[in-house]
Design a protein around this nucleic acid. Structure first.
Length: 646
RNA sequence: GCCGAUGUAGCUCAGUUGGUUAGAGCUACUGAUUUGUAAUCAGUGGGUCGGGGGUUCGAGUCCCUCCAUCGGCUCCA
């Protein structure tokens, strides 16, 4: 065994240390302040405990709170600390999984006959703080499978036993801090004393192993920090996020509402929301007209037979509203537009000369989402999709798919959407014939094509195997709500299955029938989710082109009303959405009202403006911009709109 | 659908251990005020305390149930 080891540090420098030294001790040798901050260490590329003894030459990277791996370990260790507190407060409690997450950690527990509720969180926090103050070290022990099983069987924790059974001997380790021992692969931070600020945020049910058929455990979420100040900042950030929650702003800004008599998940669009929808549709219509789409309209219901043809019924019936029985047949509210569009395709014989045929519709669909899933505008039961289906030949597919992708990117640029991830879902060849259509050459061809388009576009994407649709690969755009929930905003799917089911064909050059490929695409997703997202994205302060009310006209006194009304006329001629805010209240109050309504422009007109033929311009969020002539104003507004829409 | 919590006026919230006609601010309406860049003053209206059932001499307060919402889980064509 070596007596000295060579340690290569991130800056490339090498230092010699006695064998058996730990990264923590190395940190202490380098700098006392660093030693206090080290949480874990990357040893030859693998993140491990900072108290791992080193016996070989290694490259070493000391990780702190500033590193994602440091945070993850910190929160993972915090989950163990919470478990220790829970065991102290609820003897006999059983433990499932307790991992770190993006912001904090959770632990799934089974408290038996007892019930843990939000009211108990404070006591648990207190216990955690008490245990943290003991500054107990985390200690790792590698353990044989048999011994590990024996330990948890004796302890009576069936979840840990089940987990261990699925592990291989030789890869099992325990961690202990204080009196608490847990099955864990680590790594962990050096000691509990590093955890200075603790907040348990919420409590929820969670199925064991995420399977609905399994028992539901109690999941406790929490977050911890090395400093109280950071916890305070985090809580403040959460509060700010709540301020821009679309459910709050949607009500305050008169965009949408729900009513018990209408039903859950069925939004009522108020006039301001109506404007948002119309502007989005206008944008989509212009974009699609330029891209050679045609627009159709289809009924909201269809007979059962169509959904048997499409193949949706057996699989998706649970997500559809129950059928209406009439004239001896069953009718379903449509949950998707594609079958209707396929029928439009099939309405006349198609030639290769007709393709690509791009059929678009702002179609309303109804989905019976589980009651617990409904979420403001983001998850509803009635939605309007910016839907279209492109019917094309195999040869045309690449260009069509690329064009759709480019359309997405153009929209994202218009809206300034930067935080998103494209999820490219592919099929598992082993499951062809069961989960996926058995058309190997089409899978290979379209997947390769989609991958190439994504790579060419130079946009970040993740490839998720075995998540494709039954009928082809797809690309989904994932976004996050302001409170951190993930949603699919847009979707772009390849489909070589439904054309077969519907017997769709076109006649090729040689007068032979061919099956087209279909692209399902919805770059703006649904009105509901997209506008919900936009409300949060803009925090309710919409860009001028989109703002429900673009301009507020504020006459100082009654004697300026004529001038103000004239001005209103001019603005309307310019097709600007303007609102006159009369003179009953003082000007300061009306400016405040307009500011809180987040109206982009306020035009104050009094004696000075009336005599000079000007307006005094105030921009929302910026304040007074001074006097403008009417022409200067309208030019400014036109330019501001054109800047975005081009 | 499952676990947990919440539900008082259009909105945001008070309502002590169950005890006489349920309060405030904003909003709305009426009147006065005619105002110069984020809240003028006064008055008036507005609630079967989510619905239903129960316990009690008495329920906004306690119990049951249903509904809705919120936080998650599962799901998401």
């Amino acid at each position: 065994m070596k007596e000295q080891i060579q340690v290569t540090l991130p800056d490339g420098s090498q230092r010699s240390f006695p064998a058996g030294i730990t990264p923590l001790e190395i940190a202490a040798a380098l700098s006392a302040s660093l030693a206090k901050k080290v949480l874990v260490a990357r040893i030859d590329g693998v993140v491990r405990d900072a108290f791992t003894p080193l016996y070989n030459d290694v490259t070493l990277h000391l990780l702190t709170w500033d590193d994602p791996e440091g945070k993850a370990a910190f929160w993972h260790s915090s989950a163990h600390l919470m478990a220790e507190a829970l065991e102290a407060l609820y003897p006999g409690i059983k433990f499932g999984y307790g991992p770190p997450i993006d912001h904090g950690f959770y632990y799934d527990v089974d408290p038996g006959d007892r019930r843990i509720s939000e009211a108990d969180l404070e006591a648990i926090e207190k216990k955690m703080a008490e245990l943290a103050a003991q500054d107990n070290r985390y200690i790792r022990r590698d353990i044989a499978k048999a011994e590990a099983l024996d330990f948890f069987e004796k302890k009576g924790d069936p979840y840990k036993v089940e987990t261990i059974r699925e592990l291989n001997d030789g890869e099992i380790s325990f961690y202990q801090q204080g009196n608490f021992i847990d099955l864990c692969r680590g790594p962990h931070i050096p000691s509990t004393g590093l955890i200075k600020a603790i907040k348990l945020t919420n409590i929820a049910g969670a199925y064991w192993k995420g399977d609905e058929k399994n028992k539901q455990l109690t999941r406790i979420y929490g977050i911890t920090f090395p400093k109280q100040k950071e916890l305070d900042e985090y809580l403040q950030m959460l509060e700010l996020a709540r301020q821009r929650d679309h459910r709050k702003l949607g009500r305050e800004l008169g965009i949408f509402t729900f009513d018990d008599d209408v039903g859950p998940g069925l939004p009522l669009w108020l006039p301001n929301g109506g404007v948002l929808i119309e502007q989005l549709e206008l944008l989509a219509k212009q974009t699609e007209e330029q891209a050679g789409y045609v627009r159709v309209r289809t009924p909201h219901i269809a007979k059962e037979s169509m959904y048997l043809t499409s193949g949706h019924l057996p699989y998706y019936q649970d997500s559809m509203f129950p059928p209406m029985e009439l004239e001896g047949g069953r009718y379903y509210l449509k949950a998707m537009n594609c079958p209707h569009h396929h029928k439009i395709y099939a309405a006349e014989p198609r030639s290769y000369r007709d393709l690509p045929l791009r059929i678009a519709e702002y179609g309303t669909v109804y989905r019976y989402e589980q009651s617990g899933e409904l979420f403001g505008l983001m998850r509803v039961r009635c939605m309007n999709m910016n839907d279209a289906h492109i019917y094309c030949t195999e040869e045309q597919f690449a260009d069509e798919f690329r064009a759709v992708n480019d359309m997405y990117l153009r929209y994202f640029k218009i809206f300034g959407i930067e935080k998103y991830v494209m999820r490219f879902s592919t099929h598992d060849p082993a499951k062809r014939g069961q989960k996926y259509l058995d058309l190997p050459e089409l899978w290979a061809k379209t997947e390769g094509m989609v991958r190439r388009v994504l790579q060419d576009s130079n946009i970040p994407y993740v490839e998720v195997p075995d998540e494709a649709a039954f009928y082809g690969p797809k690309v989904d755009v994932q976004i996050w709500s302001v409170i951190g929930r993930e949603f699919t905003l847009a979707t772009n799917q390849v489909d070589f299955g439904q054309p077969l089911r519907f017997g769709l064909t076109y006649t090729n050059r040689n007068n032979e029938p061919q099956t087209p490929i279909v692209i399902h695409r919805a770059p703006l997703g649904t009105h509901e989710r997209f506008i919900g997202f936009l409300i949060e994205h803009y925090a309710g302060s919409f860009p001028l082109w989109l703002a429900p009310v673009q301009v507020a006209v504020l006459p100082i006194a009654d004697r300026h009303l004529d001038y103000a009304n004239n001005l209103m006329g001019r603005l309307r001629q310019e097709r600007l959405r303007a609102r006159l805010m009369g003179s009953d209240e003082k000007i300061g109050k009306r400016i405040r009202t307009a500011e809180t309504a987040k109206i982009p422009y306020m035009l104050v007109v009094g004696d000075k403006e009336t005599s000079e033929g000007t307006v005094s311009v105030r921009r929302h969020g910026q304040g007074d911009l001074g006097p403008f002539s009417i022409e200067q104003l309208t030019r400014r507004l036109r330019e501001e709109i054109a800047e975005v829409l081009g």
